[in-house]
Nucleic acid binder design. Structure first.
Lengths: 171, 171
DNA sequence: AAAGATTGAACTGTCAATCTTG
DNA sequence: CAAGATTGACAGTTCAATCTTT
């Protein structure tokens, strides 16, 4: 397993202690590789990006598979304009459909199409398998709980010190 | 602190156990917010992106602040073409300079300029402060070690199951 | 005016094709 | 031909300006 990492004194990482640096490097490395591998696998197996997958998953949180554009953006945690561009591209590919809400015509409703639902159902098991294989499977119940607790604590600190409001809970 | 999260049975997350889901959500949430906040702070305080910062830091690992384009790309963990585009944009802003290597003229050397070095030196303390405030400060030495160990274990799994070779060690 | 959303321009990242030197 | 790198076209992201409905 990885131990001490030497850092030249000119490097900004010299501002961290050895233990801090170790945690920070480990986190950044995991994060970078994981994103890369998830994207690659989804693209190869199902022809969708991680961002596409996240959007489709978000829509399943509504029983009918329909959400207002703003609600969708808030759920995914990105800006409205980005979600708008993204949903439009996905609509062109047939994965979702867009339409004005009947009751308030300012609202754009984004809905899973049959094709979108089918794509997600086909993609999910392999994606979850990857996550399990890469992250979850090798941690015992105790390590998993410890990791969850630590990350939740970190998340709270980020929200406290950050510039964005805490989002509504992930159902 | 966050506890059980309900997931509709149609959601792909139903494929994970409650404990697995908790760890996975916590990781994804931390990762997403942290990237956002780091980017925002660097941009606001120093006028550079997180990607710019990473490239500048990578260059400091050479005493003279000069690396071959390929070596730089490998160090940052991105593709050569991306690094090439990025370095070119940064050169236009005066943060780095580009030139053919004397001994092998296929090689492009990327060098920190005085301005690039000054920008990094000015940016680093506040960036490190943010990382400390958001992630490191609130974890005791034991939690920090435990987190490092778990993430290093996860990283090894990712490399095992992934498609990319293990990169050279971060000095 | 405020809320919900879209648009267009500028910027960043990805992929395949190409160029240059060894 | 292989290695190092760049290019150009396209996909995705951000930001500010704009549009529509309430």
């Amino acid at each position: 397993v990885s131990a001490e990492v030497e850092v030249p004194p000119e490097s900004p990482f010299a501002l961290l202690t050895a233990a801090e640096r170790r945690a920070w490097f480990a986190f950044m490395k995991v994060q970078l590789r994981l994103r890369y591998e998830m994207n690659r696998q989804l693209q190869a197996d199902s022809g969708i990006s991680l961002a596409d997958y996240d959007l489709l998953v978000a829509l399943t949180s509504d029983p009918a598979g329909t959400m207002a554009m703003s609600a969708l953006a808030a759920r995914i945690g990105t800006e409205r304009s980005r979600t708008s561009h993204h949903a439009k591209r996905m609509a062109a590919r047939g994965l979702v459909s867009l339409g004005a809400a009947a009751d308030d015509r300012r609202v754009t409703e984004v809905s899973l199409t049959d094709q979108g639902r089918a794509t997600l159902l086909a993609a999910a098991p392999r994606h979850v398998e990857l996550v399990r294989a890469m992250v979850l499977d090798d941690l015992g119940p105790a390590a998993l709980d410890e990791l969850s607790g630590t990350l939740e604590q970190v998340y709270d600190r980020i929200i406290e010190h950050g510039t964005l409001p805490r989002p509504a809970d992930h159902p």
